[in-house]
């Protein structure tokens, strides 16, 4: 099943290190502003709406 990795911008260095570890430098993933753990439901909804175009882009969905 096609999948997209999502992480907050605080974890970009780790995400890129993990991608190199697996032999995929430049692996595409979605990064969202940090933090998310303390957001309200409305705050989470906003994050999802903001990231959705990028998720679809990585999945190769054409509008």
């Amino acid at each position: 099943m096609p999948a997209v990795s999502i992480c907050t911008d605080a974890f970009r260095i780790t995400a890129e290190a993990m991608a190199r570890t697996y032999g995929f430098p430049g692996f595409q993933y979605v990064s969202v502003p940090h933090p998310v753990a303390s957001l309200s439901a409305e705050g989470i909804r906003q994050r999802v709406e903001e990231m959705l175009p990028r998720v679809l882009e990585i999945l190769g969905v054409e509008e």
Partner: peptide
Amino acid sequence: LGLRPHELDQ
């Protein structure tokens, strides 16, 4: 294991 801070040790 490469668990260095600011990289894989978060």
